[in-house]
C-alpha cells in the first residue's frame, strides 16, 4: 500500500515537472504547424526582407522588415536607457547604500515589475507622450523614443535585481584585496567587482532584453503602431508583438494574413528563446 502511494506521488511529481517542457514544445509545434503553410504562398525572402506590411491591401504584402526594425529600435533604445541606469542602481544597492535601506530599495525596484504593463502604457500615454511631442516639436508623441523610455522602466527591475545578486555574490576577498592595495571604493568597484560580476550582469541584461522584446501592451499604446521602416527614434514604429496583438482579432482564420501572424510569432519565440538560453548559460556559469 505504502509502495503504491510512493509510486503515485513520484509519478505525479514527474508529470508536473515534465508538463512545463511539454507545453513549451507543444506551443512551438503548433506555431510551426500553422506558420509553415504561409511559406507556400509567400517566399521567405519577401517575408523577411520586404519593406511593406500591407496585409489587407490587394495584392497583400507581408514584408516583415518594418516590424523587425520596430522591435529592434525600441529594444535598443530601452536598453540604452536601462542598462546604465540598472547596472548603476544595482551597484548602489549592492555596494553603496546603507544596509538598513538595502532591502527597502531592492523591494521597491522589484515592485516596479508588479505594475501591469497596461498601466505603464497608460501612464506613458498621458504623461510622456505629450512631453515628447512638445519637446521635439513633433506631429505626434507616439514614437519609438516614448516606447523605449517606458520599456526601460519595465526592464529595470529584471536588470537591477539579477545584477545586484551577481554583484553581491562577488567574493568579499576581491574587494578586500583591492582596498588593501590602496584602491578607493570606486576603483574596487569598476576595476575588480564589475569584472568578477560580469557574467551575471550580462545575464541580467539579456533577461531585460527578453522582457522588452516580448512586451506588448505598453508598446502598442505608446509607439504609434505605424508599420513603416523607421529612420530615427522620433518616428512611430510598430513592433512584432504589437502586430500580432492588433491584427490577430481581425484576420480571417486560414487566410494568408492569419498564417503570417503565426510566422511573426515563431520569430518572436525564437528570439526570446535564444536570449533566455544565453542568459541561462551565463547564470549557470556564476553558480559554478
Amino acid at each position: 500500500m505504502k509502495k503504491l502511494k510512493e509510486f503515485i506521488i513520484e509519478k505525479a511529481i514527474f508529470l508536473s515537472g515534465s508538463l512545463s517542457i511539454i507545453f513549451v514544445v507543444l506551443i512551438f509545434v503548433f506555431l510551426v504547424k500553422e506558420g509553415v503553410l504561409f511559406f507556400k504562398y509567400v517566399p521567405p525572402k519577401d517575408f523577411l526582407m520586404g519593406n511593406n506590411w500591407y496585409p489587407l491591401s490587394t495584392p497583400e504584402q507581408f514584408g516583415m522588415l518594418p516590424l523587425i526594425l520596430g522591435s529592434l529600435l525600441v529594444t535598443i533604445g530601452s536598453m540604452l536607457i536601462s542598462i546604465p541606469l540598472g547596472v548603476a542602481c544595482a551597484f548602489y544597492i549592492a555596494e553603496v547604500v546603507n544596509p538598513k535601506f538595502k532591502d527597502i530599495l531592492k523591494t521597491g525596484v522589484e515592485l516596479l515589475a508588479a505594475i501591469p504593463s497596461v498601466v505603464i502604457g497608460f501612464v506613458g500615454m498621458i504623461t510622456l507622450v505629450p512631453w515628447v511631442k512638445s519637446i521635439f516639436n513633433l506631429p505626434t508623441g507616439l514614437t519609438a523614443l516614448s516606447g523605449s523610455i517606458m520599456l526601460a522602466f519595465m526592464a529595470m527591475p529584471t536588470i537591477v535585481s539579477i545584477a545586484e545578486d551577481a554583484i553581491t555574490a562577488v567574493p568579499r576577498r576581491y574587494k578586500e584585496a583591492a582596498l588593501a592595495l590602496g584602491a578607493t571604493h570606486w576603483q574596487a568597484m569598476y576595476k575588480v567587482i564589475i569584472v568578477a560580476a560580469a557574467p551575471g550582469i550580462f545575464a541580467a541584461v539579456m533577461l531585460g532584453v527578453g522582457r522588452v522584446i516580448g512586451e506588448t501592451m505598453a508598446v502598442m499604446m505608446i509607439t504609434g503602431n505605424a508599420a513603416v521602416i523607421p529612420h530615427t527614434f522620433l518616428e512611430p514604429v510598430r513592433t512584432l508583438t504589437a502586430t500580432i496583438a492588433a491584427e490577430m482579432g481581425e484576420s480571417i482564420r486560414g487566410s494568408n494574413h492569419y498564417y503570417a501572424l503565426f510566422v511573426v510569432g515563431i520569430i518572436l519565440f525564437i528570439i526570446t528563446f535564444i536570449i533566455n538560453f544565453v542568459a541561462d548559460v551565463f547564470l549557470h556559469r556564476i553558480k559554478k
Binding site: Y174, A177, L179, A180, L181, V195, A196
Partner: peptide, 19 residues
C-alpha cells in the same frame, strides 16, 4: 590610500583578482 600603499597586506586565502 597612502597608508595602504606603504603597508601591503597578504590574506589568509590567496585572493588574486579574477584578471
Amino acid at each position: 590610500i597612502k597608508l595602504r600603499k606603504n603597508v601591503g597586506m597578504v590574506f589568509q586565502r590567496p585572493n588574486p583578482f579574477p584578471l
